[in-house]
Amino acid sequence: MGALIAIIADTWRQSRQQVVFLIMLGLLALTALTTVALVHTVEVTTDDGAVVEKVVVYGIDDAGELLSEGWAGLYSTSILAEYVNEGESVDPFSEEGQELQQKLFDFAALEAQTEPKRRAVETLIWAVGFVVYVVSMMLFIAACAGYFPALLEAGAVDIVLAKPLERWKIFLGKYLGGMALFTAALLGTYALLFFGLGLRTGVWHPAIFMVMPLQVLSAGTLFALIALLGVIRGSTALAMIVGYGYYLIVDKIMQFLLFANFGGEGWQSLQKVLRAAIPNFVRVRDTALMAVINAPATDWQPVMVMFAWLLLSLGLGYWIFHRRDF
């Protein structure tokens, strides 16, 4: 156990030396602090003479309205997804689809009025969460690409392997070290947002932390793929290029191919099969962020597929690491 912790701690030290990791920490903190600084509440008198408190953002006129409509849009999309997930495929461009969307939006808009301040904060957290999600994932790819190639460098790996440790501990220690760091950075950012927005608006919204598990899962899967590549080729640059290539290009194409509503019945059947086999980071990100607004529907399939890929990549990476001569 002590050795495992030592490897995790070493990965922590290694990361502290990486400029990209420091940039990630800086950007996440900046995003959270800027949000907290710009948000505040004002009291407004409604048409019927009642005084209500609204959440507004400096520099954005009608921010209260925008946030309320944003919440309705997110909530209705979530309900719409439930229709799609349950096999009731809805073509968003058809008359029927348009009508359903409008109905759901109107319902959500009414729901938004029940607790306007809370809904506004939820929308705000969703938006900031989106930025945090994208920034952290993008920079984590660069930060984690070098962990395994550095471990496996000739002359570096020898001493570690010569210690009385099973290889799974070395592999897992390095992996968990990278993930611990990422999780800590996220936890800090979301905690800053939670307390900052709570103090500024009076709305304490612990659901903000519900983004984390799926975001950690996404990062973990991406890291496992990058680790696998790092073990196979031992190249930081290659691991980084493939990581970005997959996350930014392949995944977006997959998102379109697997989830866009087009094609005949045969294609749609194939889509369903592929959805159960290919991970999709966009889908998991959307699912994670929807947790902030307490959406009624959670699409678990992409989550399960991603988890399976995490285990598969990690297992394959370890198997190669275990069998290799250094």
């Binding site: 002590g2 490897i7 070493d10 030290r13 502290r16």
Partner: peptide
Amino acid sequence: PEGHRFPNYLTAEGVCRYFGQLGG
């Protein structure tokens, strides 16, 4: 090992501490 490469972010005592910990 011949041609060893220690993590360049470690100090002399850091190297000894890290590998000592790995040794139990």
